[in-house]
């Protein structure tokens, strides 16, 4: 603007025709919902780190027992209660096989004449903790994923039907939920476990028996919201069947929220399994999950803290990672957070 406006060459004032459609041009590349979500979650460092941690733990839960030179079940009583010893690390003064015996720090491996390495140490029966921890992780993860999957299927179906059909169906279904939701989860889980043979199936059933309610309520609310929106009405006016409306219009819109909810169900299920096992209602020996391992470790906390340490560590890592990933997914998938 500082330029002397009298000096502007005359030909600058020629009129130009501008195609106004050019101004309508969308400058940003259009992204699908999932591409957009991926871009968002990629920026969330905590979620990405969590994803890698989870991947690592899941892979290790299968590979771990295989790479350990010791079996998870074999009891070697002469090798009982050994602290962790890892080749390489032992030279650094950690995980070197030293433990407290009668108030003194001694190399328990030397004392017991053990010339092999137990990476996470051994338990009171001389079983390799490394294999047991990963085996237990596998069981805990299996229970959690199975429970989350069942919760999702029942919850989506129940909430979907209730919300989509509405009216009398919805009324009856919601009264049932209202009563069920009043029953404390803890009470019902414990009763179910007492009733059934303790084991993986019993735990999964106990967790899912009321677990689906949360999902069903979320799904119902979402379906109610979408089924009356213009694009659904338009599709219905054009003669789309119920099946088509549900699969093409409603489901894709609520998928994000279903995924987020499932992500939060998994740590919940992991916790409940560990909790039940901890109070003695979970898996029975020799089967092991993270919960039973923690329970065992708790009993010998004072003298063999390593037995408690590793399963607690993995359990905590799993829970933290699932929660952080769930948070990340919620931020990425929830359109409310969009700027």
């Amino acid at each position: 603007m500082s330029q002397d406006i009298q000096k502007i060459p005359a030909d600058s004032f020629e009129r130009v025709h501008i195609d106004s459609s050019q101004a309508e041009r969308i400058t940003k590349p259009s992204l699908s919902f999932w591409q957009d979500a991926w871009l968002r979650i990629r920026k969330n460092k905590a979620a990405i780190v969590s994803m890698f941690i989870l991947l690592f733990i899941i892979i290790m839960s299968f590979v771990g027992p295989m790479i350990s030179p010791h079996d998870a079940e074999t009891q070697t009583l002469t090798h009982a209660n050994l602290p962790p010893k890892v080749p390489g690390l032992e030279k650094l003064g950690i995980m070197d096989g030293y433990g407290t015996l009668a108030g003194k720090e001694v190399d328990l491996y030397e004392l017991k004449k053990v010339d092999t390495y137990y990476w996470f140490g051994t338990d009171g029966l001389g079983r390799d903790m490394f294999s047991r921890v990963w085996k237990g992780t596998q069981v805990s993860l299996f229970i959690a994923f199975a429970a989350a999957l069942i919760d999702m299927v029942i919850g989506v179906a129940y909430g979907g039907i209730s919300g989509y059909y509405g009216g009398r169906v919805d009324d009856i279904m919601q009264r049932i939920v209202e009563i069920l939701i009043g029953i404390p989860t803890l009470v019902i889980v414990i009763l179910m476990i007492l009733f059934m043979e303790p084991g993986v199936t019993a735990i999964i059933i106990a967790i899912t028996i009321t677990g689906w309610i949360g999902m069903s309520r979320v799904v119902r609310a979402q379906v109610l919201k979408y089924k009356n929106q213009e694009f659904v009405l338009a599709s219905r006016t054009l003669g789309a069947s119920n099946g088509r409306i549900i699969s093409k219009h409603i489901l894709p819109n609520i998928l994000g929220i279903i995924i987020i909810n499932t992500m939060f169900t998994i740590p919940g299920a992991i916790f409940f399994e560990a909790f039940l096992s901890f109070i003695g209602l979970g898996l029975q020996p020799p089967a092991a999950s993270l919960g039973t391992l923690i329970n065992d470790g708790n009993k010998v906390l004072q003298f063999q803290p390593h037995i408690l340490l590793y399963p607690s560590l993995i359990l905590s890592l799993l829970m933290i990672a699932f929660n952080l990933l769930g948070d990340g997914l919620r931020d990425a998938l929830d359109p409310k957070m969009k700027d």
């Binding site: 740590p267 708790n298 906390l301 905590s316 933290i320």
Partner: peptide, 12 residues
């Protein structure tokens, strides 16, 4: 951490 770590692990 508070939400993730079960109270019994924390307690021990």
């Amino acid at each position: 951490v508070g939400i993730s770590i079960p109270s019994f692990v924390f307690a021990t």
